[in-house]
């Protein structure tokens, strides 16, 4: 939601987020390098830096993958979601440095092109302990590059959020490739069981978090049995069940809608923010505008349109309030269509 495109739309929160991230990454690298020198004084510095970069990127990837489900389970994790793409670009940068250093170290001093050598020096696909793990890392890096390169809002608009999101779900494919890269590579050389245990713990923790988040979300998507009137309106809830200046979400018309109560009125809009399909129903109404909890995009609840000069719009739904109940028609109106808000009947009034 901005006037024009810039490299990064800096604000105080983003600066704080990025400084914290940079501090954490540098601290990790420093601790790893110093610790390795102390524990293995004969180890080569190239290998230490290689492993520092690789492990830092992999740990950061676990954090990135955990943020999504954590934010679903508890709203207090939402601030980490806000600037997650910066974390992703940082992780890609670390992985790229690791990849370039590895390519140079292992394949840079022969007569074969390093990239060709990467694929042809080891073709033991029939072996587990000598499985060619480096190509797995290469393909993971390609996926991470595609995600980092398309992390700007321009690509969200150009590719549209659903397609952009599909591309960025490639992070799970990258994670699987990296599990293989680490499992068939590093962990075949360094065989301490604790290291394998760490890898397994990270993977299982992510799977468990995603399962828990899915369990919570699925309940909302399997809502059924709304009472329907002769005009096709569905009775969703009682007005007073919706907190003031907040929303509630329902699964209607093939996807979620968000019903908001504000200034004595009730309106219903599509739940998916036009920016990154964030959940508008989890946002607040601030100064009369529905505010997306992910990145702050705003919409007028009666029209589903962003205030000028911004042009984002979401579909709206016809709504009526009868005897304190909210009734919504499941057929959406085109984005930006004005719908008369329902009036909240105050207790004690006719």
């Amino acid at each position: 939601m901005s006037h024009g495109y810039q490299f990064v739309g800096w604000n105080r929160q983003k600066k704080l987020y990025d400084l914290t991230l940079l501090g954490a990454v540098l601290s990790y690298l420093l601790l790893f390098i110093v610790g390795s020198i102390v524990l293995h004084p004969d180890a080569v510095i190239d290998m230490i830096i290689l492993r520092a970069l690789g492990t830092c990127a992999f740990v950061l990837l676990h954090v990135i993958l955990a943020i999504g489900p954590l934010a679903r389970l508890d709203r207090r994790w939402l601030p980490l979601l806000y600037n997650r793409r910066h974390m992703g670009v940082t992780m890609f940068t670390l992985a790229l440095l690791h990849g370039l250093l590895s390519l140079l170290t292992y394949h840079g001093f022969g007569d074969t092109h390093p990239l060709v050598s990467l694929f042809t020096s080891n073709t033991r696909y029939d072996s587990l302990s000598q499985f060619p793990f480096q190509p797995l890392g290469f393909f993971a890096l390609i996926l991470l590059f595609l995600m980092a390169a398309t992390s700007h809002d321009f690509w969200l608009a150009t590719l549209t959020p659903p397609i952009w999101k599909t591309l960025h779900m490639g992070v799970y494919v990258a994670y699987g490739l990296l599990l293989g890269h680490v499992g068939f590579g590093f962990l075949q050389t360094e065989t301490h069981p604790a290291l394998f245990g760490l890898l397994a713990a990270g993977c299982l923790t992510l799977l468990a978090l995603h399962l828990a988040a899915a369990g919570k979300e699925t309940k909302l998507d399997t809502q059924d049995g709304f009472q329907q009137d002769g005009e096709g309106y569905l009775k969703l809830c009682e007005v007073l069940e919706i907190p003031n200046n907040r929303g509630r979400m329902f699964f209607v018309g093939g996807d979620r809608i968000a019903v908001f109560r504000y200034d004595g009125r009730v309106s219903a809009i599509s739940n998916a923010c036009q920016h990154q399909n964030g959940p508008l129903g989890e946002g607040r109404v601030i100064d009369g505008l529905v505010t997306c909890p992910w990145h702050g995009f705003q919409y007028d609840p009666a029209t589903g349109a962003s205030p000028p000069p911004f042009t984002e719009k979401v579909p709206t739904f016809n709504l009526k309030v009868l005897n304190g109940s909210v009734w919504v028609h499941p057929n959406p109106n085109p984005p930006g269509t004005y719908v008369n808000p329902g009036l909240v009947e105050e207790p004690g009034h006719a």
């Binding site: 901005s2 006037h3 024009g4 495109y5 810039q6 490299f7 990064v8 590059f145 595609l146 390169a149 398309t150 700007h152 321009f154 690509w155 608009a157 150009t158 042009t311």
Partner: peptide, 20 residues
Amino acid sequence: LDPTARERASVGFRLAILPA
């Protein structure tokens, strides 16, 4: 192609979208 870029497209933005 993009009306938002017509309003303003900084040098940093142009460099950022170059790889993709």
